[in-house]
Design a protein around this nucleic acid. Structure first.
Length: 115
DNA sequence: ACTCTGACGAACC
DNA sequence: TGGTTCGCCAGAG
């Protein structure tokens, strides 16, 4: 049978985003754009951030704090229930942050294609 | 069916 | 250098 696909299947871009984010190693960070590019949504980085917002509601252990924008700025920090929660989560992993921006962004950047 | 909204990013002025 | 506009497209109202 299976004439129809399940309501939500693994091809859902939500799942794809979550899967990538979950693979971000602690102490590393990546960008919305990198994820969207990796998923073939290259010009739809907004969708990634939007999926993350949905993930926030979900119970999943999604390290959303490891996803920042292309400049390494913690643009999503206000979605963690506090103004500095995201920053503290990152600092707790050894990521240095200054003025809401990740220091050594280029060095800590994790490319989804790495592994 | 339509309009508005976005945790982005790049182009444009 | 920096603010504005546009593209992207799925959800919500």
């Amino acid at each position: 049978m299976m004439h129809k696909l399940p309501v939500k299947d693994s091809t859902s871009f939500f799942e794809n985003v979550y899967d990538v984010v979950r693979r971000i190693p602690p102490g590393r960070i990546t960008s919305y754009g990198a994820i969207s590019e990796y998923l073939g949504l290259c010009k739809s980085a907004r969708m990634v951030g939007w999926a993350m917002n949905a993930a926030h509601s979900a119970v999943n252990d999604i390290p959303a704090h490891r996803v920042v924008n292309r400049n390494g700025v913690l643009t999503g920090k206000h979605h963690f229930g506090g103004s500095s929660i995201m920053q503290q989560l990152l600092e707790n992993e050894g990521v240095e942050i200054e003025n809401d921006q990740v220091k050594n962004f280029n060095q800590l950047f994790w490319d989804p294609r790495e592994k």
